[in-house]
Design a protein around this nucleic acid. Structure first.
Lengths: 339, 339
DNA sequence: TTGTATGCGTTATCAT
DNA sequence: ATGATAACGCATACAA
């Protein structure tokens, strides 16, 4: 391993001068800077991140906290795209990425302890239970944090436009002539509350009836509970003509229940998904769903985090809302409007 | 930030003793060790990874290289599971995880340079072009490496049993009475070559005819090319009765082409996927496919890498083959055997 | 059993 | 413009 000390010896300069030259400091002559850089390159010099971090207390390393209830973790479709976008943009901006966990060296550590131990310059949080004490603690640790799909007062955040997304879906169904629209929603989270609120408000604004039974709980990414919810809706005395699902996977569970009953989509009942995952556009009938641009969200999270880190105490937390896009498929029937 | 120096001052011991006590060294009395640990805990002491790494040249950090041609990266279904399993097991074993990229601090770095810069103790490689010079360079860097689905002489490797998987699928089709079996395979990679070889060998052993036209190339995860390949097969004078696809997503492309022609699965033509992704078991007809246990593969890669790191020069590269599991769905018809 | 001293590779301060 | 030196936090060889 070649160090600046060895370069210094080889060139006849001091380590101080070598360090400055390599970091492009102004107070070193262009000539010697050139000579030193050449020697460094020839000798195969590489800086040592640990030494640099120790000295400057900057790691140029971001911590990533991605955990979810279902323990889908990195295999979660939405979040794997977030991570993907975050990673690419962070690397462009000069930061590496590591995962934060609740253990270090085999021993239990809090997230905050882990982050301090590794001296992360900043942290992105997604896909977790934001009421978790350990997460709240991390958020308040003083380390710059950007959260995804949740807002803390003192952190930047990148948010999928859930309110707009649900509004667009319901409005689309309305325009297609639907007047009895039901919402199978996910378990209680901040995202779910936003979506449910948007659903109720949009229905009210459109003058739609909102029987309590048209709001049915299920579990995100779980076809099973979505099927049960669907059964409940179909057995209502006055069943809906259109069902909105919490995500595209849940949609599949609903679809199966519908077909099991000999009903057809969209002939007998119309349905809509959420997320716009790849397979949603591959199967027939093509799914009507709302595509979330998760890659873009990840990129924006990286940019916001860099801003938070580099602006330091003067940073004003950004609230970035990323709009989705309605993918008009073939699962919503065009109805004659009821009298 | 509290350091061992501050603990030393607070307890009246030297930094050396504090360091030893905190690391559970034998040559420190149980009593003082206890006192020191108590003080450390009370003062909120946390070790500093950079300082430790600088001193010991061990980072307890693994580098992960996950890139693929399609740039699906982390959103690739198979690889996101590998990463997930790797992450969990590595954390249990006391290692953190960071991504390796070809840039550091915004400047271009080779993978090897990046790995040296961060002083990774070990590296896992998956999902890349293994002929890439930068990858080969990393493999030969001297840093312990474990590869997924590829073998280098001097590295450990974890392999999906592609030979056994294809054998099982073909044999299953044979048992179901199929005698004209076609294979739509992915682009040329090591995995593809193993699968094609297994396909040919199994057909030969079963005494099946193997017309050249029954081997059709497509692209992994691309429904489009799979559809084209399917069209070619269906238009053959003697079309196959069963088609094996390179993955479950490609299967969908094939299915769409089949249905577009008014044919039904499995009534008119039987089909099989590969991977066993979640949605493959949700849609009807349920897919017959081969489930790869990618999470397990990731875990085993972590264990193998720890072994490589800790055994040092005495490490003998392991070749771990992980068997898949045939998921018997509803897409392969039971045929009367032709005379 | 405990303490002293040194150095890991780097950056930063202050002289020269 | 360049260099001597200290310090970042920690682990360890060796002395006491």
């Amino acid at each position: 391993m070649v160090t600046i000390k060895m370069i210094a010896k080889s060139c006849g300069f001091s380590v101080a001068t070598v360090s400055k030259a390599l970091n492009g400091a102004a107070d070193v002559s262009a000539e010697t800077a050139e000579r030193i850089r050449k020697a460094a390159s020839e000798m195969g010099y590489l800086p040592n991140a640990a030494a640099r971090s120790l000295k400057t207390s900057r790691s140029y390393n971001f911590g990533v906290l991605f955990e979810d209830d279902a323990n889908l973790g990195l295999t979660h479709r939405f979040f794997s795209h977030i991570l993907n976008g975050f990673k690419h943009r962070a690397e462009e901006l000069g930061y590496d990425i590591s995962f934060i966990s609740d253990r270090v060296g085999g021993a239990d550590f809090s997230y905050t302890e882990h982050a301090r131990y590794r001296n992360f310059d900043g942290i992105v949080i997604a896909s977790v239970d934001y009421t978790d004490h350990a997460v709240v603690d991390l958020v308040n640790s003083g380390i710059p944090v950007v959260t995804v799909d949740y807002v803390f007062d003192n952190c930047g955040s990148v948010l999928s436009d859930n309110v707009g997304g649900v509004r667009d879906l319901v409005t689309y169904a309305y325009r297609m002539g639907h007047r009895r629209i039901a919402f199978v929603h996910g378990e209680d989270t901040a995202v779910t509350r936003h979506r449910v609120a948007s659903f109720c408000r949009t229905c009210r604004e459109l003058g739609l009836e909102q029987p309590e039974e048209y709001l049915v709980p299920a579990i995100y990414m779980d076809p099973q509970t979505a099927g049960v919810a669907t059964a409940k809706l179909l057995e209502l005395p006055k069943p809906p003509s259109c069902i909105l699902y919490p995500d595209d996977i849940s949609y599949i569970g609903g679809m199966n229940e519908i077909e099991r009953r000999g009903l057809s989509i969209p002939g007998d009942i119309s349905v809509m998904g959420y997320d716009g995952i790849d397979v949603s556009q591959m199967f027939h009938p093509k799914m009507t769903t709302l595509r979330q641009d998760a890659d873009r969200m990840g990129e924006l999270a990286a940019e916001e985090l860099v801003k938070a880190v580099e602006e330091g105490r003067g940073y004003i937390p950004g609230r970035i809302v990323v709009p989705g896009k309605l993918l008009e498929g073939e699962t919503v029937a065009k109805l004659k409007v009821e009298s």
